[in-house]
Design a protein around this nucleic acid. Sequence first.
DNA 1: ATAAAAAGGGCGTTATAATGCACGTATCAA
DNA 2: TTGATACGTGCATTATAACGCCCTTTTTAT
Lengths: 67, 67
Amino acid sequence: MHVSNLAREIKERRKTLDINQQQLSELTEIGLRTIKGLESGKTNPTLKTVVTILTVLGLELTIKTQK
Amino acid sequence: MHVSNLAREIKERRKTLDINQQQLSELTEIGLRTIKGLESGKTNPTLKTVVTILTVLGLELTIKTQK
DNA sequence: ATAAAAAGGGCGTTATAATGCACGTATCAA
DNA sequence: TTGATACGTGCATTATAACGCCCTTTTTAT
């Protein structure tokens, strides 16, 4: 899982749930500017930011052994 | 996956591979102080830091739908 | 085509992760 | 128990994530 992958997956999931960045910002209580930066793959978010967003989107991180 | 969970899993895996924090620091080129902070669960690491460490440990992050 | 909504991004500020250094604490072997 | 090795942590500095503001670009609906 690279940062750009994560950005794409989050964006995709958000669209599937039919919410916009503004709404995701409100649901997560994470600044809109942060959401924008993350989804466009321009930043290196903290784990907390990622987990909070994934949780609201009904997703979660797991650890696996590399294939 | 919470931050404290991640810390525990990383530490456990490192011990399984029988390397110490100093060696993990060298292998990942991440500062020893950062490794220490992360494993003791006292910090909120960036995604990049987490991914770099997991990769060296032969692990990877994946996204799943919440159970 | 065009208006509205959504997304992208520059800039400056604030909060905090990453880091090295130094030292305390814990673990383990002899 | 003592010495060595590994781990935890306070502090100060540097780098950068998070953030709001505001404008541009892209997408979507009519």
